[in-house]
Design a protein around this nucleic acid. Structure first.
Lengths: 217, 217
DNA sequence: ATTTGAAATGAACAACTGTTCATATACCGT
DNA sequence: ACGGTATATGAACAGTTGTTCATTTCAAAT
């Protein structure tokens, strides 16, 4: 039975490995890396602690693997599909879709956990700080900056410092995302913060757009 | 010798207690609470671990005491001296002084450590989350909101949603403050971020102010 | 000089930590 | 059916953790 081959091949090997990663991410993101014990992880997946050492050299390697996944996660790839294709969309629509991507991250379990892991370990783990800074912050702000520069040249928005605009557009989105993750921790309502993502884009666009009425003359 | 009395009174009792707090804050804010051992704290102040238990019931009580101090720290009291007296200042000047307060926090050792402690433990410590949310976020945003409302009534700025404006003014300041603390960790230059505090106020004010030229007619 | 009380010490504890390793188990290709 | 390989187990380890406590130190008040 080749079908069973495939099944068991998936069940064996990499399956428990990915289960370890999944369980570890859940625990690390809620208790923190240091406070999570190897026994916690094993216990949560109904296995003895020594079993984990068939898949990972040690506890640190589990974290390192999770951190590596961060690079390819949605958190870091806000512009993933967008970027060039949608560049010719109406300006505000593009900004809104970026804001929505931010917003949705908070409501996907995997991404939310990765974000919480990032926030909790960023002050202790130099590698995480590096990924945050280069991939999450710098890269996205640079792309935003380029986007605003194009918009200025196309006379869609007022001219100014594109990098400043990028930072001012980015930072509230980051802040609201953090607020959502904090509110969800205490099971509080997130609705008022969630609406801020769109309000931010509305206000931001109103402030930078070139008024159409002046094209009359 | 009454002079010696005063000296030894200061040396005894509360002095070692405050030294424990100072040392603990330094260690907690750089390694995290869980990763800092009682032996670390005692060792850093040249004393044996058991000595700490004459001043605090346990390790948690040290953290709780530090967290309590948070409520009265500059981090939480952005509006401390400002508020009512300066309300009649020119609008932009007031906003700029608030932004400067934010900026200066990152460059005062004590406040910087408290901010890092806050950021590192906010996902694990419910009390810290509560203080952050009520005193640092809600309270300041509410005050900002009232400020913008007054400015709208005095026709200093365009009318709109004051709470939205407050959030949009607050969130970049918070973000830049976090950026500074992260850059300083890796001993990187903070100059480009530091200049953002002022640029933020400049741009923000330009967007909300009522153009003076229209008062000509 | 003696008493007193607060603060520091040294030693020890029990619990918990990450990790190792010989052994057992289950499943695959042959 | 068999042998091999990957994975799981049980038990143990050495080190670290927070905390306790009887004893000592030492300056202040009597």
């Amino acid at each position: 039975m080749s079908e069973q081959n495939v099944n068991t091949a998936l069940l064996r090997g990499s399956n428990t490995k990915s289960k370890i990663l999944k369980t570890s991410l859940k625990l690390f993101s809620s208790k923190g890396f240091k406070a999570t014990t190897v026994r916690d992880i094993a216990g949560a997946m109904g296995v003895k602690q020594s079993a984990l050492y068939n898949h990972f050299k040690n506890k640190d390697e589990i974290l390192e693997t999770l951190v590596s996944e961060l690079t390819s996660s949605a958190i870091v790839r806000i512009f993933a599909d967008k970027d060039t294709q949608e560049l010719h969309k109406e300006g505000k629509t593009l900004l809104m879709s970026i804001a929505t991507t931010f917003k949705l991250i908070s409501f996907d379990g995997q991404n939310e956990a990765l974000f919480k892991l990032l926030m909790q370990e960023i002050y202790r783990n130099e590698r995480i700080r590096e990924i945050y800074n280069e991939h999450f912050y710098q890269e996205n702000v640079k792309k935003l900056s380029g986007l605003f520069f194009s918009m200025m040249q196309n006379e869609m928005i007022k001219s100014g410092d594109p990098l400043l605009l990028a930072n001012e557009f980015f930072s509230p989105l980051f802040f609201y995302q953090m607020q959502v993750s904090l509110l969800k921790l205490d099971k509080k309502s997130t609705s008022s913060v969630v609406s801020m993502f769109e309000k931010h884009v509305d206000l931001f666009w109103d402030n930078i757009k070139i008024e159409k009425q002046s094209t009359l003359f």
